[in-house]
């Protein structure tokens, strides 16, 4: 009898030892949550006061090596990262402030997004008039993204953040503040000192950007790329022709093959890179360019 039990133990041990690794990894995958990005939330300040009308929350995504997630306009494929917040009586999260994206090219398909890591910034409005608060408010979010490398995987997670009321926020940290400062540097600036116009001739947008006299950020040593905020407006994968002369930029961008209506404004982000080799950002500005159709 004892030998029989030992035999069973031996068989169970042998079977579990010889089981294919995939059997374990599959169950691990099902229970382990997102695999290609991890999310953390942190506030801009250690606490909010009744006099505050708004503050920022950083939604930081750490992205697995070699993978990327998407900007608000994902480009030719992919899906914009999205955040859905639960309703809260005094805190109202607004639209995402998007850092300027990078470009990913694959087989004639160009997409816009982020690799390594990104911090999306969320302005949060504070309104005490609707409700009284006796404990630290907690904001809950559902964050969804599509992670792509040679394959694409749709992932999502829930996250929450506790905001301190006139006392240190439990989720506040100095490193979080640094991440928010770094993210703010990557938010495209809104500059008023640029006269922008575009003309649509057949399938070309001809853009002209004339800065004020004291604006000296358009250098002919830089490389520029215009990221359209909306999909279906420009051909993302077609080379953008850019001339910079005496601080004035002229660009020719092919319109999308899917654009079958007139547009009044070309909205997007112009990013200037200081050199082709190191790909360092020199300038990133939001543009809302009036379009004159031929």
């Amino acid at each position: 009898m004892r030998n029989f039990s030992l035999l069973w133990i031996y068989i169970l041990f042998a079977v579990s030892f010889c089981m294919p690794a995939s059997a374990f990894s599959n169950s691990f995958m099902e229970n382990s949550g997102p695999r290609y990005a991890t999310v953390s939330l942190f506030p801009e300040t250690p606490e909010i006061h009744s006099s505050d009308s708004s503050f920022l929350i950083g939604v930081h995504l750490n992205i697995k090596d070699g993978w990327h997630i998407y900007w608000k306009n994902p480009g030719d494929s992919g899906l914009a990262t999205s955040i859905r917040w639960d309703d809260h009586p005094i805190l109202t999260p607004k639209d995402i402030l998007w850092p300027f994206p990078s470009r990913f090219d694959e087989e004639g398909v160009t997409t816009y997004g982020y690799s390594d890591s990104v911090t999306l910034l969320i302005p949060v409005e504070v309104d005490y008039s609707n409700s009284s608060v006796d404990s630290n408010p907690v904001l809950k979010a559902q964050i969804q993204w599509l992670a792509c490398k040679d394959i694409c995987v749709s992932e999502s997670t829930e996250a929450s953040i506790e905001i301190g009321l006139a006392s240190d926020s439990p989720d506040y940290s100095i490193s979080g503040k640094t991440k928010i400062s770094n993210a703010l540097e990557k938010i495209p600036a809104s500059l008023s000192g640029i006269r922008a116009s575009a003309k649509k001739e057949n399938r070309l947008f001809k853009i002209n950007l004339v800065p004020d006299k004291d604006f000296s950020h358009f250098s002919n040593k830089d490389e520029f790329y215009f990221y359209s905020s909306e999909s279906g407006i420009i051909e993302h994968s077609v080379l953008q022709v850019v001339h910079v002369d005496n601080g004035i930029i002229d660009m020719e961008i092919q319109s999308s093959r899917y654009l079958n209506h007139e547009i009044r404004y070309l909205e997007g982000v112009l990013v200037g890179y200081s050199s082709k080799d190191d790909n360092t950002k020199h300038i990133a500005i939001t543009l809302d360019i009036p379009v004159y159709n031929d």
Partner: peptide, 14 residues
Amino acid sequence: NTTTTQPYGCTVKY
């Protein structure tokens, strides 16, 4: 009426 729209999805894995 609508003859063309921007397609969405994963890239074709050529």
